[in-house]
Amino acid sequence: MPRPAQSVALLISLAASAALAAPPAFTKAQADAGAKVYKAQCAACHGAALNNGGAPKLAGPEFLKKWAANSLDDFHFIMTSTMPQTKPGSLKPAEYLNLVAYVLQKNGFKPGAKPLTAGALKTGTFKK
């Protein structure tokens, strides 16, 4: 029957939204390591400030608005499947995670004691 199924689906969706609201955890060490990878692999196109290189902006209100409806996993998916431009997917899994941590930090999120893990990407967002 379609109606109960739709109700269940709606509940799941609401529960997911609540879970997505949790601020993403990452460490300063991850963000620092991400900054090094960023400088070597990303800055030429995305700019030193993450939003001044001509390529899509990775920091600032426009970036946060664009990604507001998506999980960190979506962001991570796009990054790993399209970047670096000439060798997508060629960085190590930890390097991609560190890049997410660096982008979070540059968008005003605070590092903490708990590291960002691959498993946490699905529930994390850029929503403030």
Binding site: K66, N70, D74, F77, I78, S81, T82, T86, K87
Partner: peptide
Amino acid sequence: VKLGEVRLIKGQLFFGGSMQL
């Protein structure tokens, strides 16, 4: 060229894979 996951994210590249040069 590699086949990959097909995931549509609004306003993002919709490749379903990747190309290494």
